[in-house]
């Protein structure tokens, strides 16, 4: 299997604007930042959560706490994958009780990652509410899950791959590209 780049659907400016809009939507929906906390899902949800926190701080002059969630131990496909994923640390340095949590991830697809993240979060404590923010929603849900905040809705085919590239993780310019999955015979 290899990936062939097809189209860039969001560049750095587009991403910045999308995050700014989401930050405003979060403030509007929650009427400010009181009791609010962001939790990024490893890996690319984490820098996105930090960027959102930065936007919120710029707008409201308040630092919103940011946590990191590793969902590996909650995956439903562990016993079917032969490439065993590496477990990394979950770091949520605040009490979840009574908090309004915004989960942050890069791409919403089948919904399985979010299902795992919800289980992982609830094992850490009982928040008042959990909302979901994603940069890209590409459809094809397999579970009854929807996002509260979406940077961009992108209709895709299943044989396509949506790749979010972030400076912090990928050491490239910010971008979102669509790639075609090419199955190679033999």
């Amino acid at each position: 299997m290899r990936l062939q780049q097809k189209a860039t659907i969001m560049d750095g400016d587009g991403m910045r604007r999308a995050l700014t809009r989401i930050a405003h939507e979060i403030l509007e929906k929650n009427r400010g930042v009181g009791n609010l906390a962001l939790v990024g899902i490893r890996r690319r949800g984490v820098p996105l959560a930090h960027r959102l926190a930065k936007r919120l701080a710029e707008i409201e002059q308040v630092q919103v706490p940011v946590g990191i969630l590793d969902i590996t131990l909650y995956r439903d496909d562990l016993t079917t994958r032969t490439d065993q994923p590496i477990v990394q640390k979950t770091e949520v340095p605040f009490d979840l009780r009574g908090k309004r949590i915004v989960l942050v991830d890069d791409v919403l697809y089948t919904g399985r990652t979010i299902r795992a993240a919800l289980d992982a979060l609830i094992d850490l404590g009982r928040p008042e509410m959990i909302q979901l923010a994603v940069l890209i929603d590409r459809g094809h849900r397999e579970l009854p899950i929807r996002a509260d905040y979406v940077g961009k809705n992108v209709p895709t085919a299943k044989r396509e791959n949506v790749s979010v590239r972030l400076e912090e993780v990928d050491e490239t310019d910010d971008a979102v590209v669509i790639e075609e999955i090419i199955q190679e015979n033999g």
Binding site: Y74, K89, T90, A120, G125
Partner: peptide, 17 residues
Amino acid sequence: AESMKEILGRSIKKVPT
């Protein structure tokens, strides 16, 4: 094990893995 040690610090010390 570093990641696992974090679980030991939680009030609910259980993951479904």
